[in-house]
Design a binder for these strands. Structure first.
Length: 606
DNA sequence: AGAGGTGGTG
DNA sequence: CATGCACCACCTCT
């Protein structure tokens, strides 16, 4: 395509004085679309320094020296970034948003993010987010040099010409990429979903800036008590297996040394298969649970504690930010192929539920003077399935009853009553397994294994289920068929997911087709849940601003949103939070009620 | 460095 | 022949 700049020699101007900055900002104010990028010494906005801010037109990049010029002093700079009449194009806007907000006091409004655009255009086809180098290559055929990027890391010197050329090119490529992506978004009818993602990215940026408070002392106490228990089980296990290993050696400190490394899969397999003569295919918990042997029992106990300590111990505390004293996880808003978030460093979405021994979530508390307002959607995925399939019985079940009890009553020929859960807990559990399993495209044999019945009985349950909910079967099969035929599926809100459909000659053709079928059955359900939660995040952020509430969205876990709000405003806000969550749900769900009960308190639980 | 196993969440 | 979706962290082994 025709470029308005020379990739080898991009036009740029280095702005180092206030007077020139003022002039350039006036020039930029005549533009409708501005490309934005920053260069920093660190990825962390709390510890890094802002070196350069690039604002560009399609022809020229203006590179502001952020160490020389205090951009906070220029009302026009703030105007350009905050006025929605200027469209701002960025690659991974979340990053730039955070530095610009914290270092120059402006919030970017009206964003087009090339990384997110690519994400919605290629959902399911790529493992990770697209880098700018990749976008420039695929859309423009331009090979970008990225080696200069790392020269900014920890940089304290004078900005070099190489660095300026690099910074300049970084935003000039954004315009033609934006134009090409816009065409594709329109062709794929993905404009609305892209707009949703662009609106969400501001919320995510703010969420990460705020972070979550964690009670470090309480966390340490939990870990210490878990370590005690783990070590006790480890010792017992080593003693129990010592007879099988001619091991009476002592280590340097006179302690009897261990027979095996309990964490080693290889050594455990040897222990079970060769020493204990218990043949096991693997050492997973499902297998261990079936083995009636003290070593298996000790290992299961050990594993329970070891897991919690290794995954949620000191490594998590090491991620507490030195400046804020809070955790600032990375939220990737297109982390999953279905449109869901993923989260890392640390992954707040996998903190264990509170339990007697390990009440981890109780350590997540509000800052002094604040409350946590927690809302999650009630049985969201079942409601989505009922609404989208239009199945009358399922709609009735999610609307008027406890859906798992209702389906259990139907399938096992019992009378439904509000106390069904108490009367027939096992039947309800079986129905719940079916309800969840079918949302993942589960087959009869897996179902049978899970609820501990023969494959024949599993098939009977499955048949009976779909006899009761005929539209559900039609709906799910329809998605599977469509995905295989066209190579993609879409949620009602318009979010697409693509599939690598194998060639008929592929030796694994059937297996891969089955896989696509299962993924496609799950996509409208999980994807719609994600769509709804993302609308809710945007609505909540807007309301917090509009109402002038002293509060912030701090995190989200798929169908749950947590806000931290000044204590005296928390109860009123909880009503608004509930209202906006339901409003977001009702944008998509038209046939079933959306439910979301708020919880106001001092710990993260509900 | 990457793969595989295991296990935490929705 | 196998057949439940979506993730991330930690461990060991190669």
């Amino acid at each position: 395509m025709e470029l308005k700049f020379d990739p080898q020699n991009p036009k740029y101007e280095f702005i180092t004085t206030g007077s020139r900055a003022e002039e350039v900002l006036k020039i930029l104010a005549n533009e409708k679309i501005i490309a934005v990028d920053v260069e920093t010494t660190d990825l962390n906005p709390y510890t890094g320094t802002l070196l350069l801010v690039q604002l560009g037109t399609p022809e020229i990049s203006y590179v502001f020296d952020a160490r020389e010029i205090n951009l906070c002093d220029f009302p026009l700079y703030k105007e350009l970034l905050e006025n929605p009449k200027y469209l701002k194009i960025l690659q991974n806007a979340k990053f730039d948003y955070q530095f610009i907000k914290l270092k120059t006091g402006s919030q970017i409004i009206n964003i087009f993010d090339t990384m997110l655009a690519e994400g919605v255009l290629t959902a399911g086809l790529r493992g990770r987010n697209a880098g700018l180098k990749e976008l420039a290559s695929t859309y423009l055929g331009v090979d970008m040099e990225k080696a200069t990027r790392k020269t900014f890391y920890g940089y304290t010197g004078k900005i070099t010409e190489d660095q300026l050329i690099y910074s300049g090119l970084d935003i000039l490529v954004l315009f033609p990429i934006f134009e090409e992506q816009m065409k594709r978004l329109q062709a794929e009818k993905l404009v609305n979903i892209a707009k949703l993602e662009f609106a969400v990215t501001r919320v995510v940026a703010e969420m990460e800036i705020r972070g979550v408070y964690i009670n470090v002392d309480k966390w340490k106490e939990i870990i210490a008590s878990l370590q005690k228990k783990r070590d006790s089980y480890a010792r017992q296990l080593q003693e129990a297996i010592r007879p099988y290993y001619n091991n009476t050696q002592s280590d340097l400190f006179g302690n009897v040394s261990d027979c095996i490394n309990i964490n080693s899969q290889t050594q455990l397999m040897d222990l079970f298969n060769n020493k204990l003569n218990i043949s096991v295919p693997s050492t997973g918990d499902a297998i261990l649970a079936t083995i009636d042997h003290p070593v298996a029992k000790l290992l299961r106990d050990y594993r329970g504690y070891e897991k919690l300590i290794s995954a949620f111990g000191d490594t998590l505390l090491a991620k507490v930010n030195k400046v804020t004293g809070r955790l600032h996880p990375d939220f990737m808003q297109l982390g999953a192929a279905t449109g869901r978030f993923s989260c890392s460093n640390p992954n707040l979405q996998q903190i264990p539920r509170n339990s007697e021994e390990a009440p981890f979530r109780q350590c997540f508390t509000p800052a002094p003077g604040y409350k946590l307002v927690v809302t999650d959607y009630s049985s969201m995925e079942m409601r989505v399935l009922a609404d989208l399939s239009g199945d009358e019985r399922l709609i009735q079940a999610v609307s008027d009853a406890d859906v798992h009890s209702f389906t259990a009553a139907l399938m096992f020929g019992k009378e439904y009553s509000p106390d069904f859960k108490k009367k027939y807990p096992d039947l309800r559990q079986a129905a719940k397994a079916i309800n969840f399993g079918l949302m993942y495209g589960m087959g009869a044999s897996s179902l049978a294994r899970q609820i501990n019945v023969t494959p024949e009985v599993g098939q009977e349950y499955m048949d009976k289920y779909f006899a009761n909910f005929p539209s559900v079967r039609k709906f799910l099969e329809g998605y599977a068929t469509h995905a295989v035929k066209f190579g993609w599926s879409a949620t009602p809100a318009g979010r697409k997911r693509w599939y690598h459909v194998p060639d008929k000659t592929d030796p694994d053709y059937k297996k891969k087709i089955a896989q696509i079928g299962r993924e496609a059955k799950n996509h409208p359900i999980q994807g719609t849940n994600a769509d709804v939660t993302k609308y809710a995040l945007v609505f909540l952020h807007e309301r917090l601003k509009k109402e002038g509430v002293d509060g912030f969205v701090t995190h989200t876990v798929h169908d749950e949103v947590v806000c931290e709000v000044r204590a005296d405003q928390a109860e009123d806000w909880a009503q608004i939070q509930q209202y906006e969550m339901v409003r977001a749900g009702e944008l998509i769900l038209k046939k079933v009620p959306v439910k979301s009960d708020p919880f106001v308190g001092d710990v993260w639980e509900h």
